[in-house]
Amino acid sequence: MIVKAHTQRNDRLTYLSCYVVRVDASEHSTACTFDLENKGELCFYQEFFFPGNYSFEFQVIKGGQRDVDVAIVAPDDSLIYNKEREKSGVHNWQTTVGTYKFCFSNAFSTFNRKLIYMSLMKQETAALAARMGTRRPDDVSAWLFVAKQIKESLDVVVELQNRYRRYEAVDRNNAMSLSARVQDWSLYQSVLVVVIGLGQMIVLKTLFTEQQTRRFSKP
């Protein structure tokens, strides 16, 4: 998968370096977690050599209101998926031969950068018998049927674990953000209490000092 990033500022095109946090790629799937700058746009290019059923999924893990603009462009430059200010989404479609473009835009955000997870997974894989080299893939024996069920169950477990990790990351970031806000507010209140206390002491000291001065200044 090819990555290209750019941002539009002051009507000039500036190229950014793409910092990919995590990339997992296999024969049938690709997943990555990347950092999207404020006012930035990041595009991934994936070339398909054979048609197939694929599933595209994304989720904003951290940053601002956890929203982003997402678009999928077909090889003929037609727009097959377009969402604005979305936190997460899934799109299933039948691919054709050619290069697809998956773009994420954070142009609406002035200060907040986003941490985004995306995955591209093939829904239909070759028959297990064919992948194992069986001469007659349609002839499913008992052990092959059990192996297929185990494989499908393991695929479901892996997908659920990945989804759980994303939800856990979102919750952890929200908890850390809330903790930081509580600490900042507590520090602000502590400083305010100290300032008010010192102000009261200064005012009281001034009043008593004026009274003593008047008492000793009588003729």
Rank of each mutant, 00 (worst) to 15 (best):
K83F: 10
R85V: 08
R85D: 07
E86Q: 11
K87Q: 10
S88P: 03
S88G: 05
S88I: 02
V90K: 14
V90A: 10
H91N: 06
N92M: 10
N92Y: 09
N92G: 06
N92T: 12
W93E: 01
W93V: 04
W93A: 03
W93N: 01
W93M: 04
Q94H: 08
Q94T: 13
T95L: 03
T96G: 07
T96Q: 10
V97G: 01
V97T: 14
G98D: 00
G98A: 01
T99R: 14
T99G: 02
T99Q: 04
Y100Q: 02
K101I: 08
K101H: 02
K101R: 14
K101V: 11
C103N: 05
F104C: 06
S105T: 02
S105F: 02
S105K: 08
N106S: 03
N106T: 04
N106D: 01
N106G: 02
A107V: 13
A107N: 09
A107K: 13
T110Q: 07
T110G: 00
F111D: 07
F111V: 10
F111A: 05
F111R: 06
N112V: 07
N112D: 15
R113V: 02
K114M: 12
L115R: 14
Y117K: 04
M118E: 02
M118F: 11
M118W: 07
M118Q: 07
M118L: 13
L120N: 00
M121N: 09
M121Q: 09
M121E: 11
M121G: 08
K122L: 05
K122E: 06
K122N: 03
E124V: 14
E124H: 02
E124K: 10
T125P: 00
T125Y: 01
T125Q: 09
A126M: 08
A127C: 12
A127D: 14
L128F: 07
L128P: 00
L128W: 03
L128A: 03
A129Q: 13
A130I: 10
R131H: 01
R131T: 04
M132F: 11
M132P: 00
M132A: 13
G133S: 00
T134C: 13
T134K: 14
R135T: 11
R136M: 05
R136D: 12
R136A: 04
P137W: 12
P137A: 13
D138T: 01
D139W: 13
V140M: 05
A142M: 11
A142T: 11
W143I: 15
L144E: 10
L144M: 15
L144H: 05
F145P: 00
V146T: 04
V146Y: 01
A147C: 04
A147P: 00
K148C: 10
K148T: 15
Q149W: 06
Q149G: 09
Q149H: 05
I150Q: 08
K151W: 03
K151N: 10
E152H: 03
E152L: 11
S153N: 04
S153H: 02
D155M: 15
D155S: 14
D155R: 14
V156S: 08
V156C: 04
V157Q: 10
V157N: 05
V157M: 10
V158K: 13
E159I: 01
L160E: 08
L160T: 03
L160W: 00
Q161E: 14
N162Q: 12
N162G: 13
N162W: 01
R163W: 08
Y164G: 04
Y164E: 11
Y164I: 05
Y164M: 11
R166P: 02
R166N: 08
Y167P: 00
E168C: 10
E168D: 15
A169F: 07
A169E: 09
